[in-house]
Amino acid sequence: MAMAQVAVEMPEVEPEETFKMLGRGVNVHYGDKQALFDVSLAIRANQVTSLIGPSGCGKSTFIRCLNRMNDVIEICRVAGDITLDGRDIYSPKIDAVELRARVGMVFQKANPFPKSIFDNVAYGPRIHGLASNKTDLEAIVVQSLSQAGLFEEVKDRLHAPGTSLSGGQQQRLCIARAIAVTPEVILMDEPCSALDPIATARIEELIDELRKDYTIVIVTHSMQQAARVSQYTAFFHLGVLVEEGETEFMFTTPRDQRTQDYITGRFG
């Protein structure tokens, strides 16, 4: 009971500065259909926050708001405010493109460009001008591939097409590609849903290591995964943020009946 009390109090006592990103009153419409209802959620720096919930609950929609990927979808309207380091990312002064360089994204299905492994990773640094010469660029590519735990496996065939890798390797390539532009936040939208358990385990380890340098938000449909990799968890249901808090507390002592039902497998 006492522990639950702490969990409830926590967001209030925590100073806002430790939040890397903060969403307040976020509403999202796709055409006439509302996908998110008044969601407020804090993303803490250098922590892994996982978003869980049954399919269609809005978790992917929310994560795509965090780097304005929804801008690409024409019928999508986002209201409310979301800040990155205290600055509103939907303000007209912010360029979505620059934002996405700071808030990178890894997708559900690995989507390497049909180019070589090297070019896949080098693409981001090239368009953002992060390397002034070829040596620098190579250093960035090697560094990112190593950080993504892929370098040892591909170092002899950096010029093979990225699509020739296995599914798990492709996903790590996509992570390396995201890291290469030195983002501050990495968003992962169900990064393991298309992978086998071994590849999944590798990615989960990787996420834990990356936490040192990056803030990570991960959408997952697996509660076990959320429990394994994240420090904070938010539970979405039907477009509403039902509950959020430290992962440990959330899975042991949920405050909401719906969360309780979900984690005990009664629906979803």
Binding site: R100, P114, G124, R177
Partner: peptide, 11 residues
Amino acid sequence: SIREAAYGIGA
């Protein structure tokens, strides 16, 4: 997915 990938790294 190709478009998303490129958007995702800030293209």
